[in-house]
Write a protein that binds this DNA or RNA. Structure first.
Length: 576
DNA sequence: GTATCACAATACCGCACGGCCAACCGTGC
C-alpha cells in the first residue's frame, strides 16, 4: 500500500472520529498524520523496515502501529470497524457548506438521513426546523450548499489528477508491450479541476488483450468498471476513474490529439481540415480514403499548416488563428521561474524556518526568495506583530550574510482589512521590500463595496502584489462577489502585479482572466503560497494556469532577473 | 493521539460570525 492511500485512510479516520464526537485533539492527530505521510520524502516502506517511523515528529505509538499494519497487511482493523459505525453517505454530507460533523450527526440520529438526496428531500419537506439547533435559515443555507455540491461532485483537483495520472503512466511505461503512452484529456490541458484520468497508449494489435490484462490487474485499484481490448475503465480507491484507450501505433498521434480535446478545439480543427480537403478523426487524417502519414501530434498540426499548439491552450480561444499566422505565444515554463515571493515561515503559520526555505530556494536554482508571513490581523494564522517583524528582519539580515548566492527579500502578506486599508502603519509598511495584499475575512460584501475595498488597497503605494484575487477555493467555495475586470484594470494603472496562487485549491487568478490582465499590461507573479518547504514545488500548477492564460516570460514578474524585479519593487514603493 | 524541561498530567492557532434561542454552539478562516 502506498503512502497516498495511507494518507487518505488517516484523513477518513479523522472525519469518522469527528462524526463520533471524539476528542478534537485526537482527531487532529490523525489529520496531522495524514499530512505528514502525504508530504514525506523518505520511502515509507523503508522506514517501516528499519523501524524508524516514530522518529518522525507527529507520528507516535498509535499511528506507527497503524501504518505498520497497513503496509504489511494492506488493511487496518481499526479503520474497518470505525467505517462500519456509519453509512458511507454521511461522509458526502460533510462536503456540503455549513454542515459539520455535529449537524450531520443530528441529521443521521434524528431523521436517519444518510445521503445528499435524502437531505435535499428533508429540506424541501421542511423536516429540519423541528430539530434542536436547526431553523428556517439553516434549511435555506443547506439547500444552497446542496446546489453548490451538485456543481462540484465527481470532480477533482488537477494536483490529484496529475499525482495519480503520472503514477499510472509511469507504471504503464514499465510494460514492454506498450510503445507509447501519455495522459490526455483535461489533465493534459491542465484544467484546474478534472472529472477523470484519460490515458492513451499504443501497442501491436496482437498484444491488446495482454496490455489490458496488465492494466486491469494493477495493484491498488478499487474495481474494474469495464474491460475491452480498445478501452478499459477502472476506479481508484479514492473514487477517481481512470480510462485507458489502446490504439495501434500508427493511430497514436490522432488518438492522443482527439482525446486531449478540448471538444471545441477539435471541432474548429476538423472544420479547418475539411476546408483544406482533409478529414480528421480519432483514427487518422485522410485525403479521400487515403490515410496521411503522421508520426507525431506535431506532424498532424503541420499537415494542417499550423504551428504546434501546446495542449494547455487548446480551448478554441483563438489559438488556431494564432498558430496559422505564426503568432502563438512562447509560453512560460517552470524552468523560467527565477524566484518566489509568497512563502510563509514558522514566524506565522508556516512549518519551516526561514533558513530552510532559503536552502530550498537555492536547491531550485532561484536567484531570489521573499518571505511573506501573515500580518497581525490574521490571528488564526499567527500573524506578525511589529516586534516579530523587527526580529524577522534581523534574522533575514544575518541569513543574507551567510547565503550570498540568493537575494532574500523582506515581504509580508498583509490582510486587506474591511475598509481596504493595509494591516500596519505606513512606517511599518515602509520597512518591507514588497507587500502582498490578500483578503482573508469579511467575504460577504456586495459587489460595489468589495470592489471599492480592493481598489483602495491597490491604490496604496505600498501594495506590490494582489494575492488570490477572488478568494475562491476550488470544489468548495465560490469567489466573493467583485468586479474583477475593474480590479484588474486598477492593477494595470497602478502597476500592481496580480498573483497566480499555485496552491491547487486556489489556482487563481483564473486562467480565463489572465489574457485580459496581459492585454492591460498587468504583470503576474506565479506564487506557491507555501506553508512548508515542499509547498514551493506547487509552482508547477501555477505555471500550468499561466500557460493556459497565454502568459510569456515578459508577463511573469518572477521569471525576471533580480535587478529588474528589484527595480519594479522600488519603483512601485516610490510612486507617491 | 502526540509531545513534553514535572514521566503523570497537561496543552494542543484563537477569534468572528451566524443562527437559534435567550447565553451559546457550530462552522470556518
Amino acid at each position: 500500500m502506498d503512502k497516498n492511500e495511507i494518507s487518505r485512510i488517516f484523513e477518513e479516520i479523522g472525519v469518522l472520529m469527528e462524526l463520533k464526537g471524539e476528542n478534537p485533539f485526537k482527531v487532529r492527530a490523525y489529520y496531522n498524520g495524514a499530512r505528514i505521510i502525504e508530504l514525506m520524502e523518505e520511502d515509507l516502506h523503508q522506514l517501516v523496515e528499519e523501524n524508524r517511523l516514530h522518529e518522525i515528529e507527529g507520528i507516535g505509538k498509535a499511528l506507527e502501529e497503524k501504518i505498520i499494519e497497513l503496509v504489511k497487511t494492506g488493511e487496518l482493523e481499526f479503520y474497518r470497524r470505525l467505517k462500519e459505525e456509519f453509512p458511507e453517505g454521511l461522509l458526502e454530507l460533510l462536503k456540503i457548506q455549513g454542515l459539520g460533523p455535529k449537524k450531520v450527526r443530528v441529521l443521521y440520529d434524528k431523521l436517519n438521513i444518510t445521503s445528499v438526496e435524502e437531505l435535499e428531500r428533508a429540506c424541501l419537506e421542511d423536516k429540519l426546523s423541528n430539530l434542536k439547533g436547526f431553523g428556517e435559515k439553516t434549511t435555506k443555507k443547506i439547500l444552497e450548499g446542496i446546489e453548490n455540491y451538485k456543481n462540484f461532485s465527481g470532480q477533482y483537483l488537477i494536483s490529484t489528477g496529475l499525482a495519480y495520472g503520472n503514477e499510472m503512466v509511469k507504471v504503464l511505461k514499465t510494460n514492454p508491450l506498450i510503445k507509447r503512452v501519455s495522459l490526455a484529456g483535461s489533465i493534459r490541458r491542465h484544467k484546474e479541476t478534472i472529472k477523470d484520468i484519460d490515458i492513451i497508449a499504443s501497442c501491436d494489435e496482437d498484444n491488446r488483450l495482454a496490455v489490458m490484462d496488465f492494466f486491469t490487474s494493477l495493484e491498488g485499484i478499487k474495481d474494474v468498471k469495464e474491460k475491452g481490448i480498445t478501452k478499459s475503465s477502472l476506479r481508484l480507491p479514492m473514487g477517481i476513474n481512470v480510462d485507458l484507450r489502446l490504439v495501434g501505433d500508427g493511430e497514436y498521434p490522432n488518438a492522443l490529439q482527439h482525446f486531449t480535446g478540448s471538444k471545441e478545439h477539435n471541432t474548429a480543427l476538423r472544420q479547418r481540415a475539411k476546408e483544406m480537403g482533409y478529414k480528421v478523426n480519432e483514427y487518422g487524417i485522410f485525403k479521400g480514403d487515403n490515410p496521411q502519414p503522421v508520426k507525431t501530434e506535431e506532424d498532424l498540426y503541420k499537415l494542417l499548416q499550423l504551428d504546434y499548439i501546446p495542449p494547455e491552450i487548446r480551448e478554441n480561444n483563438g489559438e488556431i488563428e494564432a498558430a496559422e499566422k505564426g503568432n502563438l505565444p512562447n509560453l512560460i515554463k517552470t524552468s523560467d521561474i527565477k524566484g518566489v515571493m509568497h512563502i510563509h515561515s514558522n514566524y506565522s503559520d508556516g512549518h519551516n524556518t526561514i533558513e530552510e526555505l532559503v536552502q530550498k530556494g537555492i536547491s531550485l536554482g532561484f536567484k531570489y526568495i521573499g518571505i511573506s508571513d501573515h500580518s497581525r490581523s490574521a490571528i488564526y494564522a499567527g500573524g506578525l506583530k511589529e516586534e516579530d517583524i523587527k526580529r524577522q528582519h534581523e534574522e533575514i539580515g544575518i541569513l543574507q550574510e551567510k547565503y550570498k548566492d540568493i537575494v532574500i527579500l523582506k515581504g509580508i502578506e498583509s490582510d486587506i482589512l474591511a475598509d481596504g486599508s493595509l494591516d500596519y502603519s505606513d512606517e511599518v509598511l515602509e520597512s518591507f521590500d514588497y507587500i502582498i495584499g490578500s483578503i482573508h475575512s469579511n467575504f460577504s460584501m456586495d459587489i460595489n463595496t468589495m470592489t471599492k475595498r480592493l481598489i483602495k488597497a491597490i491604490n496604496n503605494r505600498y501594495l506590490t502584489i494582489l494575492g488570490h484575487a477572488t478568494g475562491r477555493l476550488l470544489l468548495s467555495r465560490p469567489s466573493y462577489t467583485l468586479d474583477i475586470e475593474a480590479v484588474i484594470e486598477a492593477c494595470g494603472k497602478n502597476q500592481v502585479a496580480i498573483e497566480i496562487n499555485s496552491n491547487p485549491h486556489r489556482l487563481e487568478l483564473d486562467w480565463r482572466m489572465c489574457r485580459f490582465a496581459k492585454e492591460r499590461g498587468v504583470f503576474i507573479a506565479i506564487e506557491p503560497d507555501a506553508h512548508r518547504v515542499e509547498g514551493i514545488d506547487d509552482i508547477q500548477y501555477g505555471v500550468g494556469v499561466a500557460r493556459k492564460g497565454w502568459l510569456e516570460e515578459a508577463n511573469v514578474l518572477n521569471s525576471w532577473e533580480t535587478d529588474k524585479v528589484l527595480e519594479f519593487l522600488r519603483k512601485r514603493k516610490s510612486n507617491i
